[in-house]
Design a protein around this nucleic acid. Structure first.
Length: 459
DNA sequence: TCTGGGGTCCTAGGACCC
DNA sequence: TCTGGGGTCCTAGGACCC
C-alpha cells in the first residue's frame, strides 16, 4: 500500500533521505537579494533539469513591445477563423484564457486582450539564444521544443557543483535576456518535468533523491507525460487515478492494457525512469497543414490547396537540405473524421513539381464527393542520409516505372532545379505569395489563418 | 460563433522473402 | 506437400506532446 500524507512541492523543504519535494524559490529569492542561504543538502546520483520558458511567445511579445507589459496578451489564430490560442500571457490567465482554447472562446473571456498572430522567426531567435546559454552550462542538453529543454547536470568527479546552484544561475542568465523560466530538478526526466510545472512562472522546484514516490504519489495520472485523455480514461476504468495507484498497480495488468507502454508508465510512476538526456536532433518528417475558414467542396479547390501546401513543404525541405521518400496526404472532413494515405517515391525528392501530381492521384483515394473538406495536410518523411542523396538521384533510372512513379512536370532535371531555385530566391526576398505555379493558384482565398497569410512565420 | 499546426512514436495487419 | 514462423517493409490510424 501507499503511504499517506504525501509531501507536495509546495510544502516546506524536507531532508534528502525522507524527502519529498523542496521548493527552492525562497532560497532563490534570498540568493538574489545577496543574502546567505542555508547550505544545500548533498545531491547523490543523477540530476536532471527541465527548463521551461514561461508563457514564452507572449513574453517575447511583451519584451519587444514595452507598452504590452503588464497587460493581457494572446498569441493565437483569429477568433473568427477557427483559430486557437497558442500562448496567453499571465495577465490573460485570470480570465480563464488557456493554450489550445478556441480563439473565439478566449475572445469572449477577455475581449480587451492584445491579440497577435505571432512571429515565429523571432521566437526561434530568442529560443536559440537561450539554448546557447543552456549548452554553455553543459553539453548534455536535449531540446524538447522551442521553449523546453532537459539538461543532465549530474555531479561528477570533475564538476561537483550542486544541481540547484546550476538551476539558479540558469534562471538568472535567462532573465537577463528579458524572459523568465521555471525549472524542475529531479533524478529523472519524468520527475524534473512534473516538478517544473508545479510552480510557474519563475519557479524552482526540487525533488531530492529518494523523494520521488512521495512527490509523484498524490498527483493525477494525467500529470505524467505520455498519459493523455485516452490512457487516463482507461486507467480510471481500472480504478487508477493517481500516480501512486499507478505505481502500486499490477504490471501484468498494465502490460495487457497498454502494451509495452504499460511497463514504461509503471516504472516512471515508481520514480525509476532512467531515460537518458539525449541529443537527437535529426528531423524525421516535415509537414504543413491548412485548416480552411470555410470548408472546401469543389474538387479543383482541393487540388489547388494541395499544390499550395505541397509547395510550402518543398520549400522547407530545400531550405533544410532534406529529400524524402515517403509522401503523405491527410484530409479532415466536415465531421472531423480524418483519412490519410502515404506512398513511397521512386526516389527521394524535395521538389513539389515532381511530387504534386502524385499527391493529386492520392487525393482520388480520399476524395468523397459532397464531403466538405476542413483541413488538408501534406507531409514528407523517410529522409536519406546525406551521402545517399546524390546516389539515389541516379537510381531513378533503375526503378521500374509504375502508376505511382514521380512524373516530373518539367522533364529536364537541371532546368527544373533551376526554376525551383530561382523561385525560392524570389520568395526569400518578397515573401511566399510573390511566386506561384499555375496549379497553386486555384483555391486561394479560402485558405485561412496565419499559415495561409503569413507562411514565413511558420518555418 | 468551439476545438490549430508541427511534430514523434506505436500498433496492427498485409505483403513478401527466406 | 497443405502449411510454420521470423524478419522487414509498408500502410492507415491513433495517442500524445508543445
Amino acid at each position: 500500500m501507499r503511504r499517506e500524507s504525501p509531501h507536495t512541492a509546495s510544502e516546506a523543504p524536507v531532508g534528502p533521505e525522507g524527502g519529498a519535494a523542496r521548493k527552492a524559490a525562497d532560497a532563490d529569492a534570498a540568493a538574489r537579494d545577496g543574502q546567505d542561504t542555508l547550505p544545500l543538502p548533498p545531491w547523490k546520483g543523477p540530476a536532471i533539469l527541465l527548463v521551461d520558458l514561461d508563457a514564452f511567445f507572449a513574453s517575447v511579445e511583451q519584451l519587444d513591445h514595452p507598452a504590452w507589459r503588464g497587460k493581457p496578451v494572446i498569441v493565437g489564430g483569429d477568433p473568427d477563423k477557427r483559430g486557437v490560442v497558442s500562448t496567453a500571457s499571465y495577465e490573460a490567465r485570470p480570465y480563464g484564457v488557456r493554450s489550445a482554447m478556441p480563439s473565439s472562446t478566449a475572445y469572449r473571456l477577455c475581449p480587451h486582450a492584445i491579440w497577435t498572430r505571432g512571429r515565429f522567426d523571432r521566437y526561434r531567435e530568442v529560443s536559440n539564444e537561450i539554448m546557447d546559454i543552456l549548452r554553455s552550462e553543459t553539453p548534455h542538453v536535449q531540446q524538447v521544443s522551442i521553449d523546453e529543454a532537459f539538461l543532465d547536470v549530474s555531479p561528477t568527479a570533475v564538476n561537483r557543483e550542486h544541481p540547484v546552484e546550476v538551476a539558479r544561475r540558469i534562471q538568472r542568465r535567462v532573465e537577463e535576456l528579458g524572459v523568465t523560466c521555471s525549472i524542475g530538478v529531479g533524478t529523472s526526466k519524468t520527475v524534473a518535468k512534473i516538478a517544473s510545472d508545479m510552480d510557474k512562472p519563475r519557479g524552482l522546484t526540487v525533488v531530492y533523491p529518494g523523494g520521488e514516490r512521495d512527490f509523484l504519489g498524490p498527483l493525477p495520472v494525467r500529470t505524467m507525460s505520455g498519459i493523455g485523455a485516452a490512457a487516463e480514461e482507461k486507467l480510471r476504468s481500472r480504478g487508477i487515478r493517481t500516480l501512486g495507484e499507478l505505481a502500486d498497480a499490477d504490471e501484468g495488468m498494465l502490460l495487457r492494457a497498454f502494451g509495452k507502454n504499460g511497463r514504461v508508465m509503471h516504472v516512471r510512476a515508481n520514480g525509476g525512469d532512467d531515460a537518458p538526456v539525449a541529443q537527437d536532433d535529426d528531423v524525421k518528417s516535415v509537414s504543413n497543414e491548412m485548416t480552411f475558414a470555410v470548408d472546401l467542396t469543389a474538387r479543383d479547390e482541393v487540388e489547388g490547396a494541395i499544390a499550395t501546401i505541397a509547395a510550402k513543404v518543398g520549400r522547407r525541405l530545400r531550405r533544410k537540405g532534406l529529400r524524402g521518400r515517403t509522401i503523405s496526404l491527410r484530409m479532415r472532413y466536415d465531421d472531423r473524421s480524418v483519412r490519410s494515405v502515404q506512398r513511397q517515391l521512386a526516389a527521394p525528392s524535395d521538389d513539389e513539381l515532381a511530387y504534386t501530381p502524385l499527391l493529386h492521384r492520392m487525393m482520388d483515394e480520399l476524395w468523397q464527393p459532397g464531403m466538405p473538406v476542413r483541413l488538408i495536410g501534406v507531409g514528407m518523411a523517410g529522409f536519406e542520409e546525406d551521402e545517399g542523396v546524390q546516389e539515389a538521384l541516379f537510381d531513378i533510372a533503375k526503378v521500374a516505372p509504375s502508376e505511382d512513379d514521380v512524373r516530373p512536370s518539367i522533364p529536364d532535371e537541371g532546368k527544373r532545379r533551376g526554376l525551383i531555385e530561382a523561385t525560392d530566391l524570389v520568395k526569400d526576398r518578397f515573401g511566399e505569395t510573390a511566386v506561384r505555379f499555375g496549379r497553386e493558384l486555384r483555391g486561394e482565398g479560402n485558405t485561412t489563418g496565419s499559415a495561409a497569410k503569413n507562411p514565413a512565420d511558420y518555418k
